[in-house]
Amino acid sequence: MKRIGVPELGIVPGFGCGFRCSHCAARGEPSGGGRLSAAEIALLKETIREHAPRALLFTGGEPTLYLEEIDELVAAHPAPGRLTVRLTTNGHFAGDSASLDRVLGAFRKLDEVQLSYDRFHAEFLSLEAVGRLYRACSERAIRFCVLVSLTSPLDLALAKELHALGDMPIRFQKVLPIGRAKENGLAYRYPAFDPEVLKERCPNRDQVLYLCGRGFSLCCSSLVFNGDFPGVVHPTLEEHLRSRFRVRMRSSRFSGLMSEVGLSPDSLAPEHSSACTLCERIFSSNRSPADAPNAKTS
């Protein structure tokens, strides 16, 4: 059987996090909760050895709570010279220089740090700590950027304060009604339903994520954080890469997926302007596109 290449493998090594941000996609657990089992680590090491992805991305939860597991997984890569290691973090360790040195120094390889920082994270981390992490990464030649979550364009104002700390790239992401954000009624607001979303395909259709305690999926959003949708998560990478779900999501526009399940655009609300929220609406119907046997792609 021919092996399918995987450019990047995202891994959630656990859902523990010391912060309790009200917009978090994961419901999260306090430090130490929900971590990779020994069997999962063995499976991931074998997967990394076999597929040799060009990049490993560790996200969470807060991945720096799982440094030993990360080290073990990175060590399994057969060609470390060609590997890029990326980290998405809440920066909890940037409060003082000693802690910062300890955490950054614990990585056998680290090429990029993306700090999640916005008005929600600002309740737990100071701007001063953001500046400290930015400088520490610069000194170690680690690429650094900040990801700011938005509930409206007005949240862009934080960019001004971040740019005052240094010339750091800033990326933005719309808050999705997932996990704790959904529980708290938080999401990026759309004035009206935008039919342009029907022409889109899944924004993560080329990605693969391993979720601690769950398995492999291309979804990193509503379908994996808001319930247990059949056919979306798979126990091995091979099963996922060859799954009907992945094939369908890579080849279909949302308009096509809606037709498959008999959904009319007239039934959609402003929040369905988001591809992920629309996708959850489609998969919540009685005829999941992951299982529909003879659906056409579009």
Partner: peptide, 13 residues
């Protein structure tokens, strides 16, 4: 997306 971005770069909520 939520945890990954569409460009294979980092991202999470």
């Amino acid at each position: 997306g939520s945890v990954l971005s569409s460009r294979g770069e980092l991202g999470k909520t």
